[in-house]
Design a protein around this nucleic acid. Structure first.
Length: 564
RNA sequence: GCGCCUGUAGCUCAGUCGGAUAGAGCAUGUGCCUUCUAAGCACAGGGCCCGGGGUUCGAAUCCCUGCAGGCGCGCCA
């Protein structure tokens, strides 16, 4: 199992503190009875040691002694021959600890040993997780919210894999229902428009006004001509609809690929009807007494499961609502396919769904806690200081493909992962081009390119990195070196936290900080020209920093240039 | 009206589930290339953490309450 240096340090510090306390009890310096609960964390500010603990303040009350006295007594008994090398009492009663040279050396050894796998952990082993993201309606081009959700879901899936989970990445394809029928009728209107007969089937009331529908109709005419002009309307609409869907889905897949967003499964909504899954799920709900009929419609008594209002599952015209299909879909996820946990990534405008879906699961006897949601706020697009509305209906939407024509994929992915999910984003297109040069992603990539450059230059002089265990890594004592190593040692823990919080933005923050610490090290410490032993140790630090940058950017699917 | 989210430097945002003198990037100002990439580094200025109560050794963080903004509340999806 790969090592987690940060965790090792914290555990060692905790054990040392507890042992020192036991000793202080034996000598009579402190009374027995201190609780085992206290923090060991990295001090917020530099210069206060490598780790800090608040145990003295936590114990002050139960032991009936001032924090300072407890801290002094414990610090005096600390074993400083292991992972902890120094301790001092500070502030209101914090004890600041310094890690030993061995810990720093061991951390680098652990990174080298794990290599491309450094950062992986096993806490999620055996957990079957499904992540659903994008799931855009195939009725038109995707918008920027889809791009954000897609990048987020894709990255989150990778993060979960790194913590050991068995992850399935899924796209729910809404290829049934009203929206899709409307697409077919819009296609029909455009079809006749292009044939020079616009009045025969005028644009439906809520039809799709986007250029893309006209494009699809034109494409159909080019391929198959006017053969549908005299066909039965039902058949015509169906054929045009299916053609448009096929075109749109192909384009969505191509756009997603450009963003390096990957899915394992495209799950068609229509299959839920074809296999009878919707009816079966409704039967199950009925058996559980969660349904009732009123005004000719079939209702789900959601209010019994914590939702304010009940919802219709089957309309009085006999058709199912989207909600019925969605409950069936989630039943399929949990029961038919046996996922332990399901994560849905939705736009914040769908947050009503999260409560309703959970109610549906509860009514089916599935623990709602197994269903988690990541709600992402809209990406607001600004051009010339004005908000550009993103609506498929208006036809003025800026699609995610358009964005890539202006912003490189690396920058877009990094940007979408750089904010917490539940904060709204403004994407200023005028600034975006300008931002290209001071975008944080270039800062990180530059650090990587610098490292490659050092390795290249020294290799040209015949100096190549040697295995870490053959080097004296204890020579790395400069503050810049140790800050960097400590941060490298924190990587596995950051991944665990990112997985826990479903928050990829931890990684963009982490890697930016790593780059910053490297740049500082680079400025303060030379590699080339130093004495052999120190040069080799620093070269190793450079190489392993590059390793961690590659691992992190690899998860984010951002490229690591060797030259810039 | 009800529900969810947000309010921290001029701007964009962090703040490790309650800790020490509230941080970073951009922007502004000043320094640093005669040895590894200046797409970099260092220093400086800049704050009523939206307002008001409460909880405790200790609050940007937790609770209550106002205010402001975003989103949602269809037999649409």
């Amino acid at each position: 199992m790969p090592k987690n240096p940060r965790q090792l340090a914290a555990d060692a510090a905790r054990a040392a503190i507890l042992a020192a306390y036991e000793q202080a009890v034996v000598t009579g310096a402190l009374p027995a009875g201190a609780p085992g609960q206290f923090d060991v964390s990295e001090p917020r500010e530099k210069g206060r040691g490598d780790l800090a603990s608040n145990f003295a303040m936590v114990w002050a009350k139960p032991l009936g002694l001032p924090p300072h006295k407890i801290a002094e007594a414990v610090a005096g008994e600390l074993d400083l021959s292991g992972t902890v090398a120094a301790a001092e009492v500070a502030g209101p009663g914090f004890v600041n600890l310094r890690l030993s040279a061995d810990w720093y050396a061991d951390t680098l050894l652990a990174i080298e040993q794990a290599g491309d796998d450094y950062g992986k952990s096993e806490g999620g082993r055996g957990r079957k997780v499904q992540v659903e993201y994008v799931s855009a309606n195939p009725t038109g081009p995707m918008h920027l919210g889809n791009a954000r959700g897609g990048v987020l879901g894709d990255t989150l899936s990778t993060i979960l894999e790194w913590t050991g989970c068995d992850v399935t990445r899924e796209f729910y394809l809404n290829d049934a229902g009203n929206q899709v029928d409307l697409l077919g009728r819009t296609m029909q209107a455009r079809y006749f428009e292009l044939l020079g007969d616009p009045d025969r089937y005028p644009m439906p009331e809520d039809g799709y006004h986007g250029e893309d529908v006209i494009e699809n109709a034109r494409r159909y005419l080019e391929l198959y001509g006017d053969k549908l002009a005299e066909a039965d309307e039902g058949a015509r609409v169906a054929e045009l609809r299916d053609f448009a869907l096929e075109q749109n889905i192909a384009r969505m897949k191509a756009d997603l690929a450009r963003y390096r967003i990957r899915h394992d499964v495209f799950f068609p909504e229509s299959s839920l009807y074809e296999t009878g899954a919707v009816e079966q799920t409704l039967d199950r709900l009925d058996k559980n007494g969660a349904l009732y009929e009123q005004d000719g419609a079939l209702w789900f008594a959601a209010s019994r499961y914590g939702v304010e209002k009940d919802d219709v599952l089957r309309k009085s015209n006999g058709f199912y609502t989207y909600y019925a299909a969605d409950i069936a879909y989630h039943h399929n996820k949990f029961v038919t396919r046996g996922f332990d946990e399901v994560i849905d990534i939705f736009g914040a405008d769908h947050h009503g769904h999260s409560i309703r879906f959970k109610a549906g699961m509860a009514a089916l006897g599935i623990d709602p806690e197994r269903l988690r949601f990541v709600l992402i706020q809209f990406v607001r697009l600004l051009r010339d200081g004005e908000v550009v509305r993103m609506s498929k209906r208006t036809g003025k939407a800026v699609s995610l493909a358009d964005l890539l024509d202006e912003i490189p994929v690396d920058a877009a992915r990094f940007f979408f992962c750089s904010r917490q999910n539940d904060t709204a984003m403004d994407f200023d297109l005028d600034l975006a081009v300008k931002q290209e040069n001071d975008n944080p992603v270039y800062y990180v990539q530059y650090a990587h390119a610098r490292i490659c450059s050092i390795l290249r230059n020294l290799a040209a002089e015949g100096v190549t990195p040697r295995p870490a265990d053959s080097l004296d890594l204890r020579l790395l004592v400069a503050e810049e070196e140790r800050d960097l190593i400590r941060h490298l040692g924190d990587f596995p823990q950051q991944l665990i936290l990112a997985a826990r919080d479903l928050d990829p933005s931890r990684l963009t923050k982490y890697v930016s900080e790593a780059a910053s610490l490297f740049h500082r090290f680079y400025t303060a410490c030379h590699v080339r020209g130093e004495q052999e032993a120190l040069m080799q140790a620093r070269l190793k630090l450079c190489q392993l920093t590059g390793q961690v940058l590659r691992n992190t950017l690899g998860i984010l699917k951002v490229t690591c240039p060797e030259r810039m």
